[in-house]
């Protein structure tokens, strides 16, 4: 019998060279998919008791407490982020607290791949693959939303002003990685305002 062990979807990809921003995979993150009704005060309080922060109710926002972060996915769905090691414990605590409430909590840590983009010009790079206007004041720290990115479904989390996490389903990890490496090449850097630098 072979042991089941987690392997990162992007294990072994070559370090990208000559990019205008930094791109790396985040593989140590645990993810829990949570569903429930915001109208159920008992459910909201029970979740807050476990994760330490109230579930974000406003569309396209996130909330965090310590090393736990919650992303709003829908009016009745959230993604709870923690360290991979803590996800299991968090899930059993949630299930205990949510007994008797109409809700669902599932560990989906292996479902998505996460790619982190860092640096000046991240927004321009992401905008090459999506119809979102990331220069809109809505896209500041604490904003997250699902989007259509390079024709596939993705989740965007604005971590800081120039730090973005892109979540895609695991089977799209290589596709997204290659798309990002191609669009983030230094000579392909876009300047949205002012004169465009012409590569030599």
């Amino acid at each position: 019998m072979s042991e089941l062990s987690y392997q990162s979807p992007l294990a072994g990809v070559a370090e990208p060279q000559g990019l205008s921003i930094s791109i790396r995979e985040i593989d140590e993150r645990g993810m829990i998919d949570l569903r429930g009704l915001t109208s159920d005060a008992g459910f909201m309080a029970a979740v807050k008791g476990v994760i330490g922060v109230g579930l974000p109710v406003k569309p396209r926002t996130s909330a965090s407490w310590g090393d736990v972060k919650v992303l709003w996915l829908s009016t009745d769905q959230w993604l709870i982020l923690s360290s991979r090691a803590r996800a299991h414990e968090l899930l059993s605590q949630l299930r205990d607290a949510l007994q008797g409430y109409h809700s669902l909590a599932v560990d989906v840590s292996d479902m998505r791949a996460i790619i982190r983009l860092e640096g000046d010009g991240c927004r321009e790079v992401i905008m090459k693959g999506t119809s979102l206007d990331l220069l809109d004041p809505e896209y500041v720290q604490g904003c997250c939303r699902r989007m259509r990115y390079a024709e596939i479904a993705a989740l965007l989390d604005v971590v800081e002003d120039n730090v973005f996490d892109i979540y895609v389903f695991r089977s799209f990890a290589h596709y997204t990685w290659n798309f990002l490496c191609a669009t983030a090449k230094a000579p392909a850097k876009l300047k949205l305002f002012g004169a465009q630098e012409v590569p030599a």
Binding site: P59, L73, S74, T75, Q77, R145, R146, M147, R148, A153
Partner: peptide, 8 residues
């Protein structure tokens, strides 16, 4: 359907 948003 709000395909790339809330999914509703």
């Amino acid at each position: 359907r709000c395909d790339r948003g809330c999914g509703k």
